[in-house]
Computed example of a mutant assay.
Amino acid sequence: MKKKALSILSVIALTGSLLAGCGTSAPQSSAPQKSEPAPAGGNQPAAQAQLEDTLVVAGNGATVEKLMKDHIFKKFNEKYPNVKLTYVSGVSTEIVAKVKAQKNSPQIDVTIIEGGEQEKGRQEGLWETITEADVPNMAKVPADLKIRDDSGVTVNFTPMGISYNAELVKEKNLPVPKSWNDLAKPELKGYITMTDIASNFGRSATIMLAYANGGSEKNIDPGFEKLKTIASYMPTFAKSAAQLQQNLQSKSAAYTTWTMARSLTQKKAGLPLEFVFPEEGANVVPNVATLVKNAKHPEAAKAFIDFLLTEEVQTMYAAELYYNPAVDVKLPDDLAKQLEFDRSKVVIFDYDVVGNKTAEWLDRFNREIAPNVGK
C-alpha cells in the first residue's frame, strides 16, 4: 500500500491546508458601543490600534456556534468591551461562497473554516495576508502549522476516521472496525451511513479507501471500487453531518466516517460512540481563521484572531469540542489522552490533485456510485 506518514505538523506544512455546522445569522449583543482603549497587558496587536466597534465572524453552527457565542465572545468582550460581535453560522462551503458573493462589499470580517475550503478561498483571492505584527500569538503556532501565503491561521485540528455506535455493535454482534476496508465487509450491510464525496467526510474516506488498496488521490480507482460495495450496503447517502448523527442516534446505522472531534462531542452528549483511527492512517482536518480581504473592521478582526490563539480559548476548543490545540498548551491528562492518535500514520494528500480532480470525481460518483445505492 502506498502511504505517506508524517507528523501532524508536517502534514499541514506540506499541504498548506486540508479538507469537515449549519444555521443562520445570529447577532450576539455585547457591551456598550462606546469606544474604549483596550486594557493593558496580555497579547495584543503590536500596533495597539483602536479597534472598531463592530465585528462579524462566520463559522460552523451547532456546538461550534454555541461555544463561540456563549463563551468565546463573552471572554473577548471582557478584554474589548466596545466591540459588538455578530456570528454568522454555516458550513465552510457556504461561508466561502458568501464571502465570494460579497467580494465587492464584504459583510463578514473573520471566517473560521475548514482547511480545504480556506485553500479554495485563497485561490480566489478572498483573504488578507496575516503577519505576526497583526496577530502576535501567531508566534506560538509552530512553523509547520503555517497556512500557505499566510492567508490564514490554523486555530485547531482533528483527525478523520471511523466512528461506530458501540451499543448497537454489541447488540448485533457486529465487528469493531480497524481498517478502512472493514467498511466493505458483508457483515456491515445495512449498518453504514456516509456522506457522498461532495462532503469532506465522504471524499476523505474515498481517498483513504484508495490508499488502503494500493491507490491514492492520484489513482482513485481502488477507492471507487470499494465505495461501490459500500454504497450497495446503504439505502442512501446522507446529505449532512446532522443526518449522520441522526442515523447513529436512531440506530438506523452503526458506522460512519467523520472526525474524532465530532465523535467525542456526540459521546459527551450521550451517544455511545467510539472513534477508530484506522490502521492505514488518515488525513486531518484543520480549522483556519482568515481575515476577509477589504474587511470593514480589520483591527477588531486581527485582535479576535489573536484571541483565538490564547491558552484560554485553545483549552476551550479542546475541552468543549475536542479539537486538538494549534499551539502548545497544557491540557488535563485525561483530556490529552482522549485527543491522542497515532500521528506517525497521518496520510498526506496532494491537495493540488484533490482540488483539480474533485469535479471529475463528483461526476464519476453520480455515474458509478449513486446508481449502486441499496443494490
Rank of each mutant, 00 (worst) to 15 (best):
Met1Trp: 09
Lys2Gly: 06
Lys4Arg: 11
Leu9Asn: 07
Ser10Glu: 15
Val11Pro: 04
Val11Gln: 03
Leu14Tyr: 07
Gly16Tyr: 11
Leu18Asp: 01
Thr24Tyr: 12
Pro32Asn: 14
Ser35Met: 13
Pro37Arg: 10
Pro39Ser: 13
Pro39His: 12
Pro39Gln: 14
Asn43Ala: 14
Gln44Met: 11
Ala46Trp: 05
Ala47Lys: 13
Ala49Asp: 10
Gln50Ala: 14
Leu51Glu: 00
Leu51Ala: 04
Leu55Phe: 13
Gly59Thr: 07
Gly61Glu: 05
Glu65Arg: 06
Leu67Met: 14
Lys69Asp: 01
Asp70Thr: 13
Lys75Asp: 14
Glu78Gly: 08
Tyr80Val: 07
Asn82Ile: 01
Asn82Tyr: 08
Tyr87Asn: 04
Val88Cys: 02
Val88Lys: 05
Val91Asp: 02
Ser92Tyr: 04
Ile95Ala: 04
Ile95Met: 09
Val99Lys: 04
Val99Met: 09
Ala101Phe: 12
Lys103Arg: 15
Gln107Tyr: 07
Gln107Lys: 14
Asp109Ile: 01
Lys120Tyr: 10
Arg122Thr: 14
Thr129Val: 15
Glu132Thr: 13
Val135Asp: 03
Val135Ala: 03
Val135Asn: 01
Pro142Leu: 13
Ala143Asn: 13
Asp144His: 05
Lys146Gln: 15
Arg148Trp: 13
Gly152Cys: 10
Thr154Asn: 08
Val155Asp: 00
Asn156Glu: 08
Asn165Glu: 12
Asn165Thr: 08
Ala166Arg: 07
Glu167Tyr: 10
Glu167Ile: 03
Leu168Tyr: 09
Lys172Ser: 11
Pro177Trp: 06
Ile192Tyr: 04
Met194Val: 06
Ile197Lys: 01
Ala198Val: 10
Asn200Arg: 05
Ser204Gln: 08
Met208Asp: 02
Leu209Phe: 09
Pro222Glu: 12
Glu225Gly: 00
Lys226Glu: 09
Ser232Gln: 08
Tyr233Ala: 04
Pro235Gln: 12
Thr236Phe: 13
Thr236Ile: 03
Phe237His: 03
Ser250Arg: 12
Ser252Arg: 13
Ser252Tyr: 10
Ala254Trp: 02
Tyr255Val: 05
Thr259Phe: 01
Arg262Ala: 04
Leu264Phe: 10
Thr265Gln: 10
Ala269Phe: 12
Leu271Lys: 02
Pro272Tyr: 12
Val276His: 04
Pro278Asp: 10
Pro278Phe: 12
Gly281Cys: 09
Gly281Thr: 06
Pro286Ile: 02
Thr290Ile: 00
Val292Ala: 05
Lys293Asp: 05
Asn294His: 14
Ala301Asp: 04
Lys302Met: 08
Phe304Cys: 02
Phe304Glu: 02
Leu308Asp: 03
Leu309His: 02
Val313Leu: 00
Val313Phe: 02
Met316Glu: 09
Ala318Val: 05
Pro325Tyr: 06
Pro325Ala: 06
Ala326Arg: 03
Ala326Cys: 08
Asp328Val: 07
Asp333Thr: 14
Glu340Asn: 07
Arg343Glu: 15
Trp361Ile: 02
Arg367Lys: 15
Asn372Lys: 15
Val373Ser: 02
Gly374Asn: 13
Lys375Glu: 08
